[in-house]
């Protein structure tokens, strides 16, 4: 066969494969700029009724931890909440909550109603710490190693599959290193 015959077919195949792969990508999954970077400096008061606030120093105590960005107005947060409760019940990993752009009273009521999986919470009323974390949608979950380095970021509600295939391995890797 001559190249003139083959070339359009090859071009078509390349285009089809490229567009096919493109279809499987999620445009909402934006690569985080903060992977392998230190968490921003912050210190936030706890959700009313809770004792422990959240600060960057709490993420540098040598223990791998999860930081979950949530809000009472966030519908998808409800979807992942049972999984977070389960994580907390099994004491798999310290889990901290960042209440993003939420009225503190609403956050407190939300936790009272659906259960409180968090060890520490931080009230980010204006969303400034969220922006420093590169948060652009809620929920988001960060895996932070014991030295305050962000090693993994999950965007959107955590499904059991995400937990098994991405988050737990990221925790294991962070603990190993």
């Amino acid at each position: 066969m001559r190249w003139r015959t083959v070339l359009p077919l090859v071009l078509f195949a390349v285009l089809a494969v490229a567009l096919g792969v493109g279809l499987t990508l999620n445009p909402r999954d934006i690569p985080s700029a903060l992977i392998d970077k230190q968490v921003p400096d912050f210190a936030l008061p706890p959700v009313p009724g809770k004792a422990l606030g959240l600060a960057s120093a709490d993420l540098k105590n040598g223990e791998v931890a999860l930081v979950n960005v949530f809000a009472s107005w966030c519908v998808a947060c409800r979807a992942e909440h049972p999984l977070l409760m389960e994580l907390a019940r099994r004491r798999t990993v310290p889990l901290h909550g960042l209440a993003y752009k939420d009225a503190p009273a609403d956050s407190a009521r939300w936790l009272a109603e659906w259960g409180d999986p968090y060890e520490r919470t931080g009230v980010d009323r204006v969303g400034r710490v969220g922006i420093d974390f590169g948060v652009y949608g809620v929920p988001e979950t960060f895996v932070v190693d014991g030295q305050g380095r962000i090693v993994f970021k999950h965007i959107g509600p955590i499904t059991p599959r995400d937990l098994e295939s991405k988050i737990l391995p990221a925790i294991a890797t962070a603990r190993g290193s």
């Binding site: 934006i30 690569p31 985080s32 700029a33 903060l34 922006i131 420093d132 974390f133 590169g134 652009y136």
Partner: peptide, 8 residues
């Protein structure tokens, strides 16, 4: 902004 959200 880029240090927080990347080139995207």
């Amino acid at each position: 902004v880029v240090t927080r959200y990347g080139d995207w």
